[in-house]
């Protein structure tokens, strides 16, 4: 049954870290440079492609993004932009982190950019202590270094008159 005519309808199977399989149309998968490279090399599309770092929930989101962008390549950019901003709206930080890691791993540039921008927006206008909590970063500064920083932030984050 395999023929060049059917290439457009070709599907491949992706497997998430928690063992769920996703059947994906090839043109949707091509949004990912990682998958594109795998398909370009001798990787058979009949094989199941394991994505050991991406859980099912995140992978479903990623594939939703890819499908919209693959199907809408000829449609208006404005529509895609509003899809992108809706897509990330109300997403919690844990989900965003997973998404940005998945986009980075699967090399989906557009998704990486919007997710990175969304996370970057949460860093804006926040003192470093708050950023530390949101991003689960351990403070490895000494108390002296920390004191110097506090003095500085007093100026940076005092309310404007």
């Amino acid at each position: 049954m395999a023929s060049s005519i059917e290439n457009n309808n070709e599907k491949l199977t992706l497997k998430s870290s928690d063992g769920e399989e996703f059947l994906v149309e090839k043109h949707v998968a091509l949004q990912s440079t990682l998958l594109q490279n795998m398909l370009d090399s001798d990787c058979s599309s009949a094989d199941v492609i394991p994505l050991p770092k991406i859980d099912a929930r995140t992978l479903a989101l990623v594939l939703g993004y890819c499908k919209k962008h693959a199907d809408a390549s000829s449609s208006k950019q404005g529509e895609l932009n509003s899809f992108d901003s809706e897509f990330l709206k109300d997403m919690d930080m844990g989900a965003l982190f997973n998404l940005v890691l998945a986009a980075n791993f699967m090399e989906i540039k557009g998704l990486l950019d919007i997710a990175a921008q969304k996370i970057a927006d949460t860093i804006k206008d926040k003192p470093h202590q708050e950023v530390r909590e949101i991003f689960h970063v351990e403070n490895d500064y000494t108390p002296e270094e920390e004191a110097a920083v506090r003095e500085e932030n007093r100026w940076a984050f005092e309310g404007f008159p």
Partner: peptide, 9 residues
């Protein structure tokens, strides 16, 4: 905003 970010760790 990178100034406070550089003080995170």
């Amino acid at each position: 905003d990178l100034v406070p970010a550089s003080h995170v760790s």
